[in-house]
């Protein structure tokens, strides 16, 4: 069994109004050093596979087809073998 930890983020250059709102919240809390906040999604997907190559190809296909929208989002993931 494998666990994929998947991060989906807005593509560079795509405006992130949520991130901007959170940034101004942080600024008002005194975190003046914050220059940017980008908000994304985190997903954990547990899959059965025999090799890391197999699970990697599978998760990539999941991201391309459904989990991320390539028009506005990028994705990356980390794979862990689990019991």
């Amino acid at each position: 069994m494998w666990r994929a930890k998947i991060f989906v983020t807005l593509r560079e250059g795509v405006l992130d109004p949520q991130g901007q709102a959170v940034r101004s919240g942080l600024m008002s809390q005194g975190f003046k050093a914050v220059s940017d906040v980008r908000i994304g999604k985190y997903m954990e997907v547990t899959v059965e596979a025999t090799s890391i190559d197999e699970v990697s190809a599978m998760v990539r296909a999941m991201c391309e087809r459904l989990l991320a929208n390539p028009v506005m989002e990028d994705y990356h993931f980390i794979l862990e073998e689990v019991q």
Binding site: L10, V14, L15, P17, Q18, A21, N69, V71, M72
Partner: peptide, 17 residues
């Protein structure tokens, strides 16, 4: 229609949230 690719582009959250 955008998600299905029948029309081009994508929808983001409204800029004022």
């Amino acid at each position: 229609l955008l998600e299905s690719g029948l029309l081009p582009g994508a929808m983001l959250r409204n800029n004022h949230l």
